[in-house]
Design a binder for these strands. Structure first.
Lengths: 233, 233
DNA sequence: ACAAAAGTGTTAGAGCTACACCCATGC
DNA sequence: GCATGGGTGTAGCTCTAACACTTTTGT
């Protein structure tokens, strides 16, 4: 009975978070330098606490670094190779999150030595964190092609050209702006505001926001322009 | 330094497998009655051993029950609610696998009291195993719509009508046979054999098999007839 | 007046859906 | 000869991809 439980080896259980952000130009990942291996960049991580669910713990970890709550958070994968952590055997459940970079308080950075890195110019990472980032990027590409999650990376109010730049950054490609805006608007997920964005272009672009009633309900197919080689999950 | 590791609580780490099979009529899940709660049906599961990766462990568990190796196996999700296992806190990583039911040796069943259940008529399950099955079904539907994994549930040689019945079972719906076979054949993933299936219908249907060179390479979009409400992951 | 980005429409082709009839065989 | 399941073709429609010019405004 209970012997079956007591005879088992327990393991350390960590969580690691791939935190994506978009600064208007490129897709970024937030990395830190932490404790043991303070010379190597790594993902923000932490240990599972006795009364937390995995998701609670992942939330807490993102909050500790960014000060943000209510961010988009999704379980990515459990990494459990016996040799992945050379110090002790540790299973790590990786989560990825999408944050609105404009809400991120850079002030917390120095506690953790955090820095944004372009996904195309990552430094060498601790343990298997490089694999985690690769997988997270694949998953983000896969998912953003079919579900309206891109908005999580933009401010509350944004323009169509901003959204296009975001998708171009995610897929590292370019889209035709006429086809792009037609497809986005045909989803009816966006509400056009009376405001225009100032300062970036002379003419100014209309601001939009997600109309949240539809956002919740539409977990159906969203966009179909997945650049083919990127599908895999 | 190492203190950081030593101060942490370890947890028991289990694996649970959702094993799908297709018997020509309906989509089935393989359930067992095991140890502690021998009155409740549950998923086949086991504990992570010190030298195994998560995937190794999941493989082993599927092998122990079915005697099969080289089955399709994919990590589904890590379940870690503090109260999910009332006996001890346990984190479980769930995997789902697709097996060719004709290769499954039913002889092993009585060791584990295994039985196939229709996914639409499941008994009450242990712990959160019901959630696991629900999620696995969602994932299977999501994935099979875009990736050619359905074949994993069929014998090496199969007919188009068999394949159609499988997809109809997965999505619990019906497809037009003309459109179905056109779409399947247009992927060029199948090789038509000179043999016909005998015994099931009077006329007999041509047998096909997956041409495996293309199967490997084509992790691109596959089919587009995802019944809309089922997308979510 | 010009530079820089925003905004907008059309056309040809591909892919999708819906639909009905003949074929081969065992009884 | 008939019942059962297997196999095939077409027409209308929708969606997609490709493509260029006009508008606005700050300097």
């Amino acid at each position: 009975m209970l012997d079956q439980y007591q005879q088992q080896h327990p393991y350390l259980l960590a969580l690691d978070s791939i935190i994506f952000g978009f600064d208007g130009e490129g897709l970024k990942v937030l990395l830190v330098k932490r404790g043991i291996e303070a010379e190597t960049w790594s993902l923000m991580g932490g240990w599972l606490q006795p009364n937390e669910s995995l998701e609670d713990a992942a939330c807490r970890i993102v909050f500790d670094l960014t000060g943000l709550t209510n961010v988009y958070l999704e379980q990515l994968y459990a990494f459990g190779n016996p040799t992945r952590d050379p110090i002790t055997r540790t299973v790590s459940v990786a989560y990825f999150s999408l944050i609105k970079i404009d809400e991120f308080e850079g002030t917390l950075s120095n506690t953790f030595q955090a820095r944004w890195f372009s996904i195309y110019e990552l430094p060498p990472l601790l343990f298997d964190h490089g694999d985690m980032v690769d997988l997270a990027l694949k998953r983000l590409r896969y998912k953003a092609a079919q579900h309206p999650i891109g908005f999580e990376l933009l401010p509350e109010k944004f323009t169509i050209p901003q959204l296009q730049k975001l998708y171009e950054a995610i897929y590292n490609t370019e889209f035709d702006k006429r086809n792009f805006s037609r497809k986005i608007l045909s989803t009816n997920l966006l509400t056009k505001l009376d405001e225009k964005q100032k300062g970036y272009s002379r003419r100014g672009a209309y601001l939009y926001q997600v109309n949240s009633n539809k956002y919740q309900l539409t977990h159906n197919a969203f966009l179909n322009f997945i650049p083919s080689p990127e599908l895999s999950l």
